[in-house]
């Protein structure tokens, strides 16, 4: 007869991932590579935004993109045309990436060669927010057609982001989207968030966004 006994554990399910993510950040720091975790709903404009960003920064730094979102084949080609190398990550049907999957991807990619690696995370606003990937900064894209109340519906996503890009502002006249309200909702979730309205289609806001990115990359890789 086996004698089972109860052992109290009381450990967070995500604690091993959190520790792994912290370790990955240290490794990236030592290598001098800045990893950006980019999150959004499907279709918010991650790939379009990245194409424009790459064409503006490709002369200054070596950029790589790791694609985990669906449509990755099309996206990978678009990224290559814009002037960066890209790799497709295999998520095995998972709705998010965790730190160990990210490390695996970086290893295959040879990430040490890059100054900036962008992780295009799986397109949803719930799961990726729960799992720290080990990225140096988290950026999310909220697009105008999704509505100004998204921060109320997905509070965790907004609270883990360092920067929120509000994309597709070229279509603002056609939507009932209140920019001031949206800012308020985001600040309520995350008072430290930076917010930059952009249009990936016509380039509005990209001076400010690329400047933010340039400074973040420089601060990470020089110190």
């Amino acid at each position: 007869m086996k004698e089972f006994k109860v052992i109290e554990v009381k450990r967070s399910i995500l604690e091993d991932n959190d520790a792994d993510a912290e370790k990955l950040r240290q490794e990236l720091k030592e290598e001098g590579t800045f990893l950006l975790n980019l999150m959004s709903s499907p279709g918010a404009g991650k790939t379009t935004m990245l194409k424009r960003t790459i064409s503006m920064l490709a002369d200054e730094m070596k950029i790589g993109v790791m694609e985990a979102d669906i449509d990755s084949d099309v996206d990978a080609q678009a990224i290559t045309e814009a002037g960066a190398r890209s790799i497709q990550l295999h998520t095995g049907g998972m709705c998010h990436l965790d730190a160990s999957m990210t490390r695996q991807g970086l290893l295959e990619f040879g990430a040490g060669d890059f100054d900036l690696v962008v992780l295009e995370n799986v397109g949803n606003l719930v799961c990726p927010a729960e799992f720290d990937t080990g990225a140096c900064r988290n950026v999310m894209i909220l697009s105008v057609p999704e509505g100004d109340d998204k921060p109320l519906k997905y509070p965790l996503m907004f609270s883990v982001c360092d920067l929120v890009l509000i994309n597709k502002i070229d279509v603002l006249p056609y939507f009932d989207f209140d920019m001031d309200k949206c800012r308020q909702y985001i600040y309520r979730r995350n008072p430290k968030a930076k917010i930059i309205p952009i249009s990936a289609k016509d380039g509005e806001g990209f001076m400010e966004w690329t400047q933010w990115l340039r400074e973040e990359v420089a601060a990470w890789t020089n110190s």
């Binding site: 004698e3 089972f4 006994k5 109860v6 052992i7 109290e8 009381k10 450990r11 967070s12």
Partner: peptide
């Protein structure tokens, strides 16, 4: 909450 409370094992 999101945690492992306990296990029963031998």
């Amino acid at each position: 909450e999101f945690q492992i409370k306990e296990i029963s094992a031998c």
